[in-house]
């Protein structure tokens, strides 16, 4: 099937969504996605940041679609013509969505552990406005510890439902979901119970913002002061392929490997994530692939640098203060 996005033609398989087709092309025209997660069934359609305009429905039925559509949910049709960043309407709608996402977000990036790897930060930088027109009080919630490893900071949540779907699909027991409705809805466990299963830590990785953070890493370091390295180990539960974040010779945290859209490649178990905090637990493969636009690349390793002696390189061992 042939489709055209912003004038770029592409050949796609039947059933591909517009978002995935755009990701296949790459570049500026890829719509941002805050809730869609290719590894999670049924995700997407909620955040509305990936809106695009369909100017021609298909070869058979060339009528344009009446409204902007969520590209993560709309399958491509043969001959479809789509406008992403080239349509002022789409740009305007995305701006609106970003503004909506931010009105109840505390914007506490200076003290948020996610800062630097936060999708909402990137999104508002790319598509948002410099100032908010929101004058009212923001909604607030108390922080909850869901288990001894995960902190839920509901104020920052944008209700993408990714963690809910992960809890439903990756683990056998469903332990957390959404309570209440409207802008009072919150992610929570059943009466603040702990989440307790082998893969629960992945909710931290799928969270696009700093709502779910790793309590073993909280306030230890800014992400751009730690060095991400690909590493692996023989793990009986999961694939064991991870990114470890080194500070000096210390492993500050372990996360799953993420692709360029911030999606986890393969989910990892809690043992790898929380318990293997020594470099000797891991076979280090080399520096992690980080986009050169990311703030984290400021301290990235260059090719060919020996990873055994991180002390001598970069700013990694300089204290943040």
């Amino acid at each position: 099937m042939k489709i055209t996005i912003d004038g770029v033609e592409a050949e796609v398989e039947p059933g591909t969504t517009i978002l995935n087709a755009a990701r296949g092309i790459g570049g500026e025209l890829v719509p941002p996605a805050m809730c869609y997660y290719s590894k999670l069934k049924g995700s997407g359609g909620k955040c509305r940041t990936c809106l695009v305009k369909v100017t021609k429905g298909s070869e058979k039925d060339p009528r344009p679609m009446p409204k902007l559509v969520a590209s993560c949910q709309t399958p491509c049709q043969d001959g479809m013509e789509i406008q992403s960043v080239s349509s002022p309407e789409v740009v305007e709608a995305r701006k609106g969505v970003v503004e909506f996402l931010l009105i109840n977000h505390p914007l506490d990036c200076p003290i948020c552990d996610q800062a630097g790897e936060c999708h909402l930060q990137d999104l508002s930088y790319e598509h948002g406005k410099a100032r908010s027109r929101y004058e009212e009080e923001r909604r607030t919630f108390d922080m909850i510890d869901i288990g001894d490893k995960i902190k839920l900071h509901m104020n920052r949540c944008i209700l993408c439902y990714r963690c809910v779907m992960l809890a439903e699909q990756l683990t056998e027991t469903r332990e957390h979901g959404v309570l209440y409705r409207g802008d009072r809805s919150e992610i929570s466990t059943f009466i603040e119970k702990a989440i307790d299963n082998e893969f629960s830590g992945n909710v931290i990785d799928v969270c696009p913002v700093g709502a779910l953070t790793d309590r073993t890493f909280r306030f230890k370091s800014r992400v751009w002061f730690v060095k991400p390295l690909y590493a692996h180990r023989d793990c009986p539960t999961c694939v064991g392929k991870t990114t470890i974040w080194l500070h000096g010779q210390e492993v500050y945290r372990v996360t799953a490997r993420k692709d360029k859209y911030g999606e986890v490649e393969e989910f990892i178990c809690n043992t790898c994530r929380y318990d293997k905090k020594s470099p000797s637990d891991w076979t280090i493969e080399g520096p992690a692939q980080i986009s050169r636009h990311s703030v984290m690349s400021a301290t990235q390793y260059k090719e060919g640098i020996k990873v055994e002696a991180p002390k001598t390189i970069g700013y990694g061992n300089i204290s943040p203060r």
């Binding site: 955040c47 909506f100 996402l101 009212e136």
Partner: peptide
């Protein structure tokens, strides 16, 4: 509408509350 928004998609969840407050 603010009270009844389900909270699933962001324009409605945040927008209805904003309208109500203004």
């Amino acid at each position: 509408y603010h009270h009844e928004s389900c909270g699933q998609c962001s324009p409605c969840r945040e927008g209805t509350g904003w309208l109500e407050k203004i």
